[in-house]
Design a binder for these strands. Sequence first.
DNA 1: CTACGGGGTAAACATTTGTTTACATATACA
DNA 2: TGTATATGTAAACAAATGTTTACCCCGTAG
Lengths: 186, 186
Amino acid sequence: MKKRDTKNRIFKAIQQFADEHGYPPSIREIARKIGLKSTKAVKVHMDSLAQQGLIEKIPGQARGIRIKQKLMPIVGRVAAGLPDLAFEEIEGHFNPIQWRNCFLLKVQGESMIGAHIFDGDMVVVKPSKEALNNDIVVANFGEETTVKRLIRTDSTFVLKPENDAYPTLTGEFEIIGKVIGVIRQL
Amino acid sequence: MKKRDTKNRIFKAIQQFADEHGYPPSIREIARKIGLKSTKAVKVHMDSLAQQGLIEKIPGQARGIRIKQKLMPIVGRVAAGLPDLAFEEIEGHFNPIQWRNCFLLKVQGESMIGAHIFDGDMVVVKPSKEALNNDIVVANFGEETTVKRLIRTDSTFVLKPENDAYPTLTGEFEIIGKVIGVIRQL
DNA sequence: CTACGGGGTAAACATTTGTTTACATATACA
DNA sequence: TGTATATGTAAACAAATGTTTACCCCGTAG
């Protein structure tokens, strides 16, 4: 059994354990999982993995392992059969981590269908007190939390829906955050 | 300062730490983070949180904390100012982990606008060779990878677009997976 | 054959970390 | 006022865990 092989198994074991338990494994847990009887052997391979940049290791800390964030592959076309997500026609990667510190707002109503945001969709909101002209924002208008497009008029900003059946909101409002994405679950 | 308040801060501290570091905090790290000088105090509150079901605690294990309520909180309404993402008006939580083993397909064309899927959107695809009647699926039709609705006719299955300007695809095709979500980045 | 280096074992060690015990402080309440 | 309960501190303890040292096995180049 080659060194690379063992190292590979250790990497996968770390991923799988973290996936199952919600926290990284200890060295001894890794050793047990892949059938090694020594902690040193595991440590050597882990140092190598860290060197390689596949994991990050925080020295001295229990379970101090950080796995490089898993990315979701974006594919444009699927060649044949199920896509082999390793090296198929991958156009890029989508990293959910860019949505850190964001929250989701469930959209009610049809006021933004012009922007392809429908009733029941969730918008990804990056909290912020400010936004730019033409951004789609989440704002508190009176007692209501609403999703609209922020538009600069001559003298002030207004909240404009993307649906002619809804009125533009003028007057006092408070910006809660900026909409940076849309999620829909089917 | 009330008990509930401290417990709340501990819960948020755990979330934040796990978010930043990739693994859960130790009790002493929590204590330091929220300004407590004793580990016992933290432990009591954590036991309470576990009792309450907000976290899971694995006794005796270093950093043996599993956060039940995971990443992105879904809110329906924002009360005032920025939302307090701990216990306020949270309707639920969206967990991107349910998209494990999925990939994203970038949609080209307008054939599914009736299902509110637009050009440039990404569909979340769960790989599978099979699907049910009326599911939205990704399939290979000839040389093309396409997103359509799977419809049972008298004798066979066809791929039906959600746009009258596009034709229904009949004949041989291979199902790649089922569409379980939509993502749009703004 | 012999020396050497990769890869593993076994065991000892030092820290980190969860748990427990004893005590202090404060607040509500009879 | 006095007491019970809740909350926190301080310290000791035990277990988990990362790190290190010494040694073994084994294939192989010289």
